[in-house]
Structure formats: structure tokens, C-alpha cells
Nucleic acid binder design. Sequence first.
DNA 1: ACGGGAGCCTGGAAGC
DNA 2: TGCTTCCAGGCTCCCG
Length: 271
Amino acid sequence: MPELPEVEVTRRGFADRIAGARIESVRIGKPLRWALMVVPQALVGRRVREVRRRGKYLLIDLDRGLLLLHLGMSGSLRFDIHLPEPGVHDHFDLVTDLGTLRLNDPRRFGAVVYVDDEEAPWALKLLGGLGMEPLGDAFDLDAFHAGLKKRRTAIKQVLLAGDVVVGVGNIYASEALFMAGIRPTLSATRISKPRAAKLHAAVREILARAVEKGGSTLRDFSNVDGQNGYFQLEATVYGRAGEPCRVCGTPIRQLKQGQRSTYYCPHCQKS
DNA sequence: ACGGGAGCCTGGAAGC
DNA sequence: TGCTTCCAGGCTCCCG
């Protein structure tokens, strides 16, 4: 489901529309990843200030406290004045005077957690270990290279881990490594400064482009208006095992790293 | 402290 | 057609 671009596109789709809204009721469906850390009734009457994003988390600031929202593997949000009756996979409705925010998540790897502030234990636990934001000025090349130097694991898994840089999911990790010409299995600590610079630029470019295009790389991603993503971005390597590399024609290879599929071109990507 | 693997859920596609 | 197996965009937790 969603990697950083999809989460950011989701955020942009309702942030301005929900700002200033008064919460009128909360409906809970099946349990998500963790219990909602608040009695739903306690949210009634509070107002939404703004919606921010940190990594793949959405932070809904209220006039008191905030909601941390994660879409997991299969989550999506909708926001509208009128929504149909909740279905079996609609597990959270935040009903406000400006519209209802609804989380649909078939696999229920997503989460909705309430905390008093960002220093609360749950906030620290969920957000505390996150790495640099890849979009914006805080994504510093020297810090990125230094972060990679400390890790002996394969670079693909370091990207996914999110403690050096956040937001790069399984699709964009393969794509960024292809763009940077780096073999996914290469130990992160062995990446030179020039190659780290290439990867740094690739991560930025891939994610920024995906945000611009509306996060439509994923086949079942739908935005907050319920519109389905149609492929505007074509994957260069992801999901293309056996097909010719778009640059050199060599068949794309697939392997497993930490139970996740990785795709790469054995000719274009060097160890 | 790090790295590897199991586990959390459900639905769709592929295989027999 | 029906059953079984595999696979999926994320992340935590437990173990060595």
C-alpha cells in the first residue's frame, strides 16, 4: 500500500479541508495494530488544528493532544461530508462538522493512536527512532553517508529500516537503487561518498516525482476522494522479474531480502 | 547494538 | 469448480 508519496498525497488531500473542524463523534470498527489509546468519547468537542506527516505517519494535531495514524500495508483514508455506511474494512471514522475522515484497512496493519503530545511514551516509541525526512532541506548528504557507514546490512534493507532515512518503501527502494546504479545486496557501510550522493539524489527524485504524480505507482492506492490510482509512474525494475532492463535489456532479477522481494538489473547495478 | 526471522491480517492470483 | 499455496506497498518483537 502506501509508501511516503502515497501518505503525503493522502495528507494533502484532506489537510486543508479538515483544519478547524470540530470532532462530533468517533466510530471504531475492528481492532487495528494497537488499541486506540483514548476513550473515543474524550475526543468529542476537540478541534483539528493541522495535519502533518512524519515518515509514513500522519499526525493530526488537535487543540489538545494528537492522533497518530498509520496506513500499514493496505490502509487508505477518505474524507467527505457524506460517506456511505461503513463496510467491513472501515475501522475508524472521525466524524467532524466539516466531514468524516474514514480509515479503510483490510489487513489491519495500520494504526490509530492518541497521545497527549509528541513526548508521550507512545509517540516516542513510534516516532522516536525515525531517520531523516527525504524531502526538504533536512536530508543532508553528509549525515546520510555517515548513517550508511554505520550499517553492515545490505543497502536495500537499510533503506527500508527507516532509521537513516524514512519513507522509502519496498517499491521505491528497488527503484532508487536502480537509479543510483547500486546493487541492493551491497553492504551499506561499503558505499563510497560519491555513490551515496547518487543514492541521496535518487531517493529524493523518485519520491518527489511520485508525490507530484499523485502517488499512483501502487495498483490499489486510492486518494481521499476515493479515486483510484492509475499507473502514472512506470516501475523501472519493481515487479519486472525476467523482463528486459529499460536501459540495457538484461533480464531483471528478483531476490528476497528479509522476506521482501527486491528487483534489480545485474548489469546496471554494481556491487 | 545489530542483524535475522517470525508474526500480525486479509484478499487476490496462481497452481493443482 | 474447489482447495491449497503464495504473494502483497509495513512494522514490531523476540532471539542470538
